[in-house]
Design a protein around this nucleic acid. Structure first.
Lengths: 202, 202
DNA sequence: CGTCTCGTTGAGAGTTTTCAATGTAAGTGG
DNA sequence: CCACTTACATTGAAAACTCTCAACGAGACG
């Protein structure tokens, strides 16, 4: 459980044994069942969470009650309503578990103290956020310039595993499309470029 | 010139006098005239740039030659094609000057050495990127869930000064809308909610 | 004065959404 | 294990939104 966290951190920076020990004391464990909320709109986002197992989605709920998915968080990802977490103001996002999930969570105070105590964690998060910005930037371009078909194609090309794991209505929401639109695009793509049948039965 | 950089950094972290001195040695100055390129698609983004004066835009050029503006960079902002800068691969973005611009630029090597030499700069960028993520996340939500009118309204509410400084066709591109659409929205808004005339002439 | 940039307007085309109905698979409780 | 409910996907038709194309006007700049 902590191993995953440690290994993800060590992927970017080097930790001493003492620091690894230290690190653990800042986090608590939390489990969520399917559909259970980590955060609801209007609450303050008290924790930043590291996903050690499972899958979450964060989403914005519009006036009509529609879910607009903002991001998914898989094993090894961090998630929160960042704005709410940093400012300790009310959250606008909801976060819930798509699959049964195990988290390591840290409060804002501990997050800050963690970095004061283990300065290399500033570096870790700097690199993490830096990479994250690249991704968000690309998504923003796609969202503003691509057609529905391009959005879906691009997504499925970049995230083939995700397509298998997450229902298409959620993927549609993530891409800012209606589920019907995605369904029609998939149909069109299947007709155009039929799947290679690697295990023909004849 | 450096003052602005230093002051922006000190806004987030504390620097010693020695560090301030040190810092300067990592940067060079660069000026751009209106429409001059800082980076063109296909080149490698060799520098991360701090805007000490002026205004830039970064954009993605689609097949039809349309500019899809990704971000603006005002005084005190950093800009680059981050993906290209970090990986030193070819850039997909173009960056050019909207107004006459003064930059402080740093290479990837120096960027990395800077943080090794002045570790608190890891912290500075961590906080900078953290804030940036909040903004991008919000833009992503808006881009995926808002109507054209909501996008424009929201933008003009949050960035009243920007509206004055940047032509509407660029704002349209930034919002992922056609300039005609923005023009029509503005007309509609003017009719609906006429501007308060604070200086009546009668 | 001519050119270029920016903004506006209209009409038609195209894309995507919405609404409603239906089908299918999967999970739950008796 | 079956019956029932819920979640997910598909399809069609109409509506809504936004874009494209084309033309025109105004202002800035050299």
């Amino acid at each position: 459980m902590f191993d995953i966290l440690i290994s993800h951190i060590q992927n970017k920076v080097r930790l001493t044994e003492a620091e690894k020990k230290d690190l653990q004391s800042f986090f608590s464990a939390k489990n969520l069942k399917r559909k259970e909320f980590l955060l609801q709109e209007g609450e303050v986002c008290t924790h930043l969470s590291f996903v050690s197992k499972g899958l979450l989605k964060s989403y914005f709920e519009d006036e009509k009650g529609g879910e607009n998915i903002n991001m998914f968080a898989f094993e090894g990802w961090w998630i929160s309503d960042f704005k709410s977490f940093i400012s300790q103001e009310k959250a606008v996002l909801n976060i819930d578990a798509v699959e049964e999930t195990e988290l390591l969570i840290i409060t804002l105070n501990d997050y800050e103290n963690l970095m004061l105590k283990i300065p290399v964690m500033d570096r870790y998060f700097r690199i993490l956020y830096q990479n994250s910005l690249v991704t968000k930037d690309y998504r923003l371009i796609a969202s503003n310039s691509f057609t529905a078909e391009e959005k879906y194609l691009e997504f499925s090309k970049k995230n083939p595993e995700v397509i298998k794991r997450i229902p298409h209505n959620l993927i549609a929401s993530f891409l800012g499309l209606a589920p019907e639109t995605v369904s029609r695009i998939r149909k069109k793509l299947l007709l155009k470029k039929p799947t290679l049948n690697l295990n023909p039965e004849y």
